[in-house]
Amino acid sequence: MHPSKQPWLHSAWIDTVFILSPPFLCLLAIVLFPDFFQQHVHNLPVPAWVLLILLIDVGHVYSTLFRTYLEKETLAQRRQLLVWAPFGAWVGGMLLYALGGGIFWRVLAYLAVFHFIRQQYGFMRLYSRKEKRPAWERHLDTFCIYAATLLPLLLWHVEGERNFNWFIDRDFVYLSFPAVAPFITAFNGLVFGVYLLKEGWVLYQTRTLNVPRNLVIIGTFLAWYIGIVYYNGDLIFTSFNVISHGIPYLALVWIYGHKRQTKASLEGKPAWHDRWSLGLVGIGFFVGLVVALAYIEEGLWDALVWRDHPQVFTFFQMLPQVEDKLLLSILVPLLALPQMTHYILDGFIWKSSGSPLKT
């Protein structure tokens, strides 16, 4: 594929910087500053926690608002889903927490894993939208994107606990069968090699190369294997996991809003809710709102449940920590409701055939 005809979602530089480069930039940071990352194998320094968890991870959850509740068209088309999804998630969360806090976090962890995997598949599909290729090539790409994510997770499960977790300690079910780990690793490498050979063959046969699709798939292989398997450190895992997921998602929501506004302007019917993605003011509103909501949520988590970062949430420390199990069974699912709703809605909101992202 000629460079000028690449299937960018917005533009070469926006897509490259905010969607495609994050896993490679994480790897570059680890190579340039290995001592810093090795110093934080078991925990995150507070500044890193603020950047990775508060601003990016929790922040990207709230960006879904701009694709759902703050978008008039989606709100009208999917009103029932937008009303019942959070209600059902809260009720389901309370039932799970009533069975045990560990059960609640385990189900939420696997739901999050599914969400993370599907995002990589979704980006691969978006960047393949203009290709006319044989079915076997498309099926191989799909197999590779799932292998790139599931095989490192399988290694995590068979090797047992690591120096990091998804949400809390032992939120995964560990199989403790390390004897099969070398075979899984070899298979992961084989799949990666087959993908590279396939792309080399396609390039030789057609003189075309889909740059963004290749960067998505190669970046996924690198981020998930290096972040989970090759290294065993909390900061490295969290950097790969959060940056490679959260930054592209934030960019995707902004690109969608920008394209939607552009279309509305061309049709002569722009509205105030279409203008949030335009210019510095729009970007400031977008970033400011998600950061403010993320800070409030994490402040409530810290004061009422965790008490991990009082220096970051000084104002919230006047609130009492909740220890009653019944109250926690109501409160914890309520505080987790934004991310649960985000996971659920994300499975629906990007499937519209009329989405401006698919043009």
Rank of each mutant, 00 (worst) to 15 (best):
M318S: 08
V41M: 10
L32W: 09
A292K: 07
P3E: 02
R307C: 02
F177C: 08
L328E: 00
Q339P: 00
T206C: 10
R260A: 04
V290R: 07
L54R: 09
N214C: 08
F313Y: 15
Y121K: 06
E131C: 11
R118Y: 03
P134S: 13
Q77I: 06
F24D: 03
I349T: 00
F313H: 15
L222S: 01
G288A: 10
A135R: 11
P3M: 06
I19A: 01
A109K: 05
W301Q: 00
Q119I: 12
V287S: 09
L331D: 04
K132V: 09
D302V: 04
E298Q: 11
V61D: 01
I168S: 05
P356I: 15
R162Y: 14
G193L: 09
L197E: 06
H245P: 01
A148H: 05
V41S: 07
I247P: 05
L82P: 01
T16W: 13
Y174W: 14
F104H: 12
E298W: 07
M1K: 04
G101Y: 02
W166I: 12
M318V: 14
H273T: 01
A271T: 14
Q321W: 07
F316C: 04
P23D: 06
S355T: 11
G233H: 08
T314E: 06
T74G: 07
R207T: 02
Q317F: 10
L55R: 09
R162P: 06
V41Y: 12
P310G: 06
E323K: 10
V107G: 02
E137Y: 13
R78T: 05
G279P: 02
W84Y: 14
F167V: 11
Q311F: 02
I296R: 02
L197F: 15
V17K: 00
Y121V: 14
F116V: 12
N165M: 15
L326P: 00
F167R: 10
T262L: 13
D346P: 01
V253Y: 01
D302Y: 10
W49D: 11
Y121A: 12
P333V: 07
L52M: 11
K358T: 12
G59V: 08
T359P: 00
V61F: 11
A181Q: 03
V229A: 08
T208W: 03
G193W: 13
A251Y: 05
G227R: 02
V291P: 02
D35F: 09
I349K: 03
L304Q: 04
F167K: 06
L215K: 03
V46E: 15
M94Q: 08
N210M: 11
M1V: 02
P3V: 04
V113T: 09
G93A: 09
C26F: 15
V332G: 01
P212W: 03
W105A: 02
S355K: 08
R207W: 08
Q119D: 06
Y204E: 13
A336E: 05
A223C: 08
L126R: 11
V31W: 15
E131A: 15
G160V: 04
R79V: 07
P310V: 00
G288Q: 12
Q39L: 14
Q311V: 04
V46F: 12
I255G: 03
S244N: 09
G59A: 10
L111R: 04
G257I: 10
S355Q: 12
R162S: 15
L44Y: 10
G102M: 07
G122T: 10
N43C: 02
Y231S: 03
V216C: 00
Q38M: 12
G59Q: 10
I217Q: 05
Q317T: 04
L99M: 12
H273D: 11
